[in-house]
Design a protein around this nucleic acid. Structure first.
Lengths: 202, 202
DNA sequence: AAAAAGTTTAACCAAATGGTTAAAATATCT
DNA sequence: AGATATTTTAACCATTTGGTTAAACTTTTT
């Protein structure tokens, strides 16, 4: 029935995602998105009335990707350290698959906070629940005492930061050698776990 | 002699910095910069021939700020752990004073890598020297063994990341409470030190 | 004081850009 | 097949935007 429609809409979404990720909302051009999708500008506006609406669709999509559910893992009845390992794995899997996400989200969240806030509200991560789990682990003397906010930011930061600054790392540390850079990013999975566990183990 | 000239040029640079930081190269408008500087567009082009040239001036300025010299500290004859503390202090001082730097630089380095690379070349940080110091500390069994690249990225990331994603942290964790947010960022100085030292101490 | 150099302004311009329109082509329904 | 709804296109439009021009005003030099 609407095989063609879906097809065109998907082509548009894919093209828009590519362009928006590369250029950001401000740098992206509707013409470029149309070209990349193999259609013309009017058709673009037929499917998505405005650049803003199209961008919102893409941004929503990517935000959905970027905030994985870590609730499940944390509820399991396993040592806290294993939970941390699991969270790191979840994030590293995601980031190795979508290395452009951090820079894109940082860029756009600073451009239009209200849109960003509106989008993440849907994924309402329950911080209290998360912090309670950290608290329990501290009370059980599994890990050293520290504010859960800092632990969370540290773990996420250790995973995400290197992707946000990939150009510097790749250029300065590995002379733009793709293989070496890739190896570094894959190493980080185990490296981060070791680092965090040493830092928090009681 | 040229007090007025310097004055206008400075006004332009300050205004341009504000606008570029808030909107980025793509989002910034020459008219807005002119307005913010209290002059008109033609005068802007009289001082800086093009938007690109003006942006380059600002970007260069900010890159200069963002890559502090940490060589001095590392050369001192103090325990490695103290060197790390010193580096963290240096970065946190900088970031608390210029919290917008990380997001801005991440945005622009991803927009135009070649410009970014050209600019950082001037500050040619000597990675080999830096890594050698880490290696020595490991050989002296002051710290656990790990690739210096990871240690460097970890320490910088722990400092920089929270500033790059300040909108999320402020909104999600502190409900946009400015005081609480500020307190969190100030706490991180000691928090990061404790975290890193526990992670690397032999 | 007159010339020269530097500074500032208002008006203007061409190109780019997001968006519209109306008609043609294609698919769907009866 | 014919009417109807959907999809696609080319041509067009208004606005925004970076940048220019030519003239006026100030400051410095001689």
């Amino acid at each position: 029935m609407n095989a063609k429609k879906d097809n065109t809409e998907d082509k548009i979404l894919d093209a828009a995602q590519d362009v928006f990720i590369k250029k950001g909302m401000d740098g992206a051009r509707m013409q470029e998105i149309a070209d990349e999708a193999g259609i013309n500008k009017a058709l673009l506006h037929y499917y998505f009335r405005s650049k803003e609406k199209l961008f919102d669709a893409i941004f929503g999509r990517l935000i959905g990707l970027a905030f994985p559910r870590i609730g499940r893992v944390l509820q399991e009845d396993i040592p806290f350290v294993e939970k941390v390992e699991h969270v790191v794995d979840t994030y590293m899997d995601l980031l190795l698959k979508h290395p452009y996400l951090p820079a894109f989200i940082i860029k756009e969240m600073n451009r239009d906070r209200s849109l960003f806030f509106k989008l993440i509200e849907k994924y309402g991560f329950n911080l209290e629940f998360l912090f309670a789990i950290v608290q329990e682990a501290m009370d059980r003397n599994e890990i050293v005492r520290m504010k859960p906010e800092h632990l969370l930011v540290n773990v996420i930061g250790l995973c995400v930061f290197p992707f946000a600054v990939k150009p510097v790392i790749s250029h300065v540390a590995f002379d733009d050698d793709k293989k070496a850079t890739q190896a570094f990013y894959e190493e980080r999975r185990v490296e981060i776990k070791r680092f965090v566990i040493r830092a928090i183990q009681a």
